[in-house]
Deep mutational scan, measured.
Amino acid sequence: DTCAICRVQVMDACLRCQAENKQEDCVVVWGECNHSFHNCCMSLWVKQNNRCPLCQ
């Protein structure tokens, strides 16, 4: 699966965690819609949006 926000494989660290060298801290979360995201990506997304980027 791919993170619906950053488009990186969810089993890999997101771009932000890769840049900050925090790959082991990058975890996967699932929305109520069952789409998967990196927690970092979702945390930033929900500050500006309240819907899944794929379900909009």
Rank of each mutant, 00 (worst) to 15 (best):
C41P: 01
V28W: 07
N21I: 02
L54M: 14
R16P: 08
L54S: 12
S36K: 15
L44C: 03
C40F: 00
M11G: 13
P53D: 03
C17K: 04
D25F: 02
L54V: 15
L44V: 12
H38P: 03
Q48H: 09
I5D: 02
S36L: 06
H38M: 04
R51M: 08
Q48K: 11
D25A: 05
K22M: 08
R16K: 15
V46Q: 13
E24I: 06
S43W: 02
C52F: 00
A19P: 00
Q18C: 09
M11C: 06
E20P: 03
R16D: 14
W45N: 08
L15H: 07
C41F: 02
H35D: 05
C14D: 06
C26Y: 07
A19K: 04
E20R: 08
D25I: 07
V8T: 12
V28K: 15
C55F: 03
N50Q: 05
R7P: 04
L44P: 13
N34M: 06
N49W: 06
M42R: 10
Q56Y: 08
S43A: 08
M11F: 14
A13Y: 03
K47C: 05
R51A: 12
L44Q: 05
Q9M: 10
E24M: 07
V10I: 10
C41R: 01
R16H: 09
N21C: 06
A13F: 13
A4L: 03
E32N: 07
C14A: 02
L15N: 14
N39F: 00
V46N: 11
C40W: 03
E20F: 05
I5H: 10
V10W: 02
A13D: 05
N21P: 10
C14H: 01
D1G: 07
A13M: 08
P53I: 04
C26Q: 15
M42F: 13
N50F: 02
M42P: 01
V28E: 11
V10A: 09
C40R: 04
A19R: 08
K22S: 09
W30V: 14
N21F: 07
R7Y: 06
V28H: 04
G31P: 15
Q23N: 03
R7E: 15
E32F: 03
V46T: 08
E20G: 09
P53E: 04
L15W: 07
D12L: 11
D25R: 04
A4T: 14
D1S: 07
E20K: 06
V27M: 08
A19C: 03
D1Y: 05
W30L: 14
E20Y: 02
W45E: 14
T2W: 04
D12E: 12
C17E: 02
P53W: 03
N49M: 08
Q18L: 08
C33Q: 01
R7V: 01
C52R: 02
W45F: 12
W30Q: 15
S43F: 01
W30F: 07
C41T: 03
R7T: 10
C17M: 01
K47T: 12
E20V: 10
L54C: 12
L44N: 09
E20W: 01
L54G: 12
T2R: 11
R16T: 12
V10Q: 08
C40Q: 02
S36M: 11
V8K: 14
R16E: 09
D12H: 07
N49F: 04
H35F: 00
Q9C: 09
R51G: 14
N34I: 09
K22L: 06
A19Y: 08
W45V: 11
G31T: 10
P53L: 07
E20Q: 15
M11L: 09
G31H: 11
Q56C: 05
Q18E: 09
C3K: 01
C52A: 02
N50E: 08
N50L: 08
M11Y: 06
V10L: 12
Q56K: 14
P53T: 04
P53N: 03
R16Y: 07
K22Y: 08
C40E: 03
V28A: 14
N34K: 15
K47S: 09
N39Q: 13
H35T: 00
N34G: 14
S43M: 06
H38W: 00
H38R: 02
Q56D: 06
N34F: 05
E32C: 06
D12N: 07
C14W: 00
E24K: 13
Q18M: 07
A4W: 05
F37V: 13
W45M: 13
V46W: 10
M42N: 12
L15Q: 14
V46S: 08
C55K: 04
V28Y: 02
C55T: 01
C52H: 01
N49H: 15
M11A: 15
M42D: 04
C33K: 00
V46D: 13
S43Q: 14
E20S: 10
N39T: 09
G31W: 04
P53K: 03
C3D: 00
K47M: 05
R16Q: 09
W45G: 13
L44E: 07
K22D: 07
N49V: 06
S36D: 01
Q18I: 09
C14G: 04
R7S: 15
M42Y: 15
E32G: 12
N49P: 05
S43C: 06
N21T: 11
H35M: 00
N39M: 02
E32S: 07
V28G: 07
V28T: 15
C17Q: 01
D1H: 02
G31D: 14
H38Y: 01
E20C: 04
V27F: 09
H38L: 00
R7D: 13
D25T: 07
C40D: 06
N39Y: 04
D12Y: 08
R16F: 02
N34L: 10
V46K: 13
S43N: 09
W45R: 12
C17R: 03
C40H: 15
H35S: 02
C55I: 02
V27H: 11
A4G: 13
R7I: 00
A13I: 14
K22I: 09
N21V: 06
C33N: 03
V8S: 12
E32H: 05
A13E: 07
H38N: 03
L54A: 13
L15V: 10
R16L: 11
